[in-house]
């Protein structure tokens, strides 16, 4: 059926400058770690980089997904949104500005608030891991797009 083992495709560039609005978040630390594992050299200035990855915003949001008949929350939905753009020094986009979003649902119970706090932390961690993987996959398939 044509399936084969995933190969060492590598990244379409070798050096990257990571430009984050807030560089001290766990997500940025995970992203750096993953880029390094994928043999990307992280450089400390945009001029020296093949590609500049710009993380313009990183937002965690929580919304009520469903209410009980008594007006209490029975499910929450977590949103994790990261605004991403990759471009090079010729101002060509590699990934045009895009807001990537990951969602997770979980059941909620006000009588178990301490346990639910830990569940939320675990879901946030998993969303962060997923987001890093999605960005790595997008980068591995990216190429310089003709300027518009």
């Amino acid at each position: 059926c044509g399936f084969h083992l995933r190969g060492h495709a590598g990244m379409p560039f070798s050096t990257l400058y990571l430009n984050a609005a807030n560089p001290n978040t766990p997500f940025i630390a995970d992203l750096r770690q993953n880029l390094t594992v994928n043999n990307i050299k992280l450089v400390n200035s945009a001029e020296k980089a093949d590609v500049i990855l710009s993380i313009e915003s990183e937002v965690l949001d929580k919304q009520i997904l469903s209410l009980s008949g008594g007006g209490r929350v029975s499910e929450f939905q977590l949103f994790y949104r990261v605004s991403v753009r990759a471009y090079d020094n010729q101002q060509r986009d590699w990934i045009p500005t895009e807001i990537m979003e990951i969602r997770r649902d979980y059941s909620y119970d006000d009588t178990k608030i301490l346990a639910k706090e830990q569940e939320e932390a675990m879901l946030v961690q998993s969303m962060r891991t997923d987001m890093v993987q999605q960005i790595i996959r997008r980068l591995s398939r990216s190429k310089a797009l003709p300027p518009q």
Binding site: R104, Y106, S107, D109, K112, L114, A115, K116, Q118, E119, M122, L123, S126
Partner: peptide
Amino acid sequence: NFDSAQADFSFVQMFAENRFFG
């Protein structure tokens, strides 16, 4: 039991070591 609860079965939870939170 102070802060524990049975975890809902989910794609995140199925790869966790503990079936409980807390």
